[in-house]
Design a binder for these strands. Structure first.
Lengths: 190, 190
DNA sequence: TAACCCATGTAACCTGTTACATGATTAA
DNA sequence: TTAATCATGTAACAGGTTACATGGGTTA
């Protein structure tokens, strides 16, 4: 039927990213945006402007509470924490079924136009990405070694480690795929 | 310096996805949106409304030309093709360096809040995803067998095959990661 | 003296999603 | 008669990006 209400797709989830981060530790918007540039930034991104706006919205909805802290040497700040209703919302969202995300990677689109450029160009494109991916993998491995491997981990840390493991496994898979791709491109250059 | 102009980040690329698709074969907006539900949809998505709007914009910019085709039994249609300027733009974009995309996957956010729910819930979350991923992998393998493996491929097809290979390699990597994750969760359930 | 860190935000803009609309043809 | 397919679009809204703003304290 045309007029059946569609399922909500539950994928506008900066909201839930913020709830999850604050459920681990109450923080200011500034600290959240720092975190997103660092660890979380590998699998989610948001600007500080977006975060501040969303914090206001989440507070207005009753999912966050805040405490204003005056500071003498630095600007005053607002420390946000998740309320009971916020936790309820987050728990429900976690349990919900989620669609598979599309692998939005510009490289794949570039391959759809790859017949239009010289093989040398595609090779350079892959090599630039290869370097960036290798750097990221190295960073993941360092994080693993420093914070997780062979350590006794809290519950939160065990789950956080899984996100790092995902990074490591996927970067290695990417490298394997890139090697296949590069050898296909090289064959065209002989 | 604060007032240095920032590098353009070149990641609003539905534009380039459309250019690349049309560079392979002139098509209507309707056919493009069908294609996106199918093959391209695994790594890019867009609604037909978005596509029609973007087609107008790309035509206004001179990157696309169109031919109106009257049909008696079906609605008339507009077949779009890429112009010389469009090809130039696409070629330049392909050669450009691109940032690594964040792995925007809701599962990773769910792991950041996983300490809030029962292990049974997280297990169910992973198992639902596992099924969907397994279905997708199966479809990729069928596509590989039917259209690519052991066949003599044109240049375009060789590159298209690489996108399918990426899908296969990544779904297998995902399964490996999910198995790790599931065994971590199971340990909490004993 | 320049630039960065802390900490918050507003405003304009672009991208993406959802709802709604038309209307003929074809298949169950 | 019910719904799907073909084929195009408008309008309202939500999400995300970029530019601009403030202002003290610290580091090179």
């Amino acid at each position: 039927m045309r007029w059946l209400i569609k399922f909500e797709c539950a994928l506008m989830s900066l909201k839930h990213a913020i709830l999850a981060a604050l459920s681990r530790k109450p923080q200011t918007g500034y600290e959240l945006s720092r975190e997103i540039e660092g660890s979380i930034g590998y699998f989610w991104n948001a600007t500080h402007q977006q975060i501040y706006k969303k914090l206001h919205a989440l507070e207005a909805e009753g999912w966050l509470g805040l405490r204003e802290v005056e500071q003498s040497d630095k600007p005053d700040k607002k420390i946000y924490r998740v309320t009971a209703e916020g936790l309820k919302e987050l728990r429900e969202w976690i349990a919900q079924e989620a669609e598979l995300p599309p692998a939005k990677d510009a490289l794949l689109i570039k391959l759809f136009g790859a017949h239009l450029v010289a093989p040398e160009v595609m090779l350079a494109v892959f090599e630039m990405q290869y370097e960036k991916r290798a750097t990221r993998l190295k960073r993941y491995l360092e994080i693993e070694k420093r914070h997780f491997k062979g350590k006794k981990l809290s519950l939160e840390m065990q789950f956080e480690y899984l996100t790092v493991r995902r990074g490591i496994i996927f970067e290695r898979a990417w490298a394997a795929w890139a090697n296949e791709s590069i050898s296909v491109i090289r064959k065209r250059m002989v």
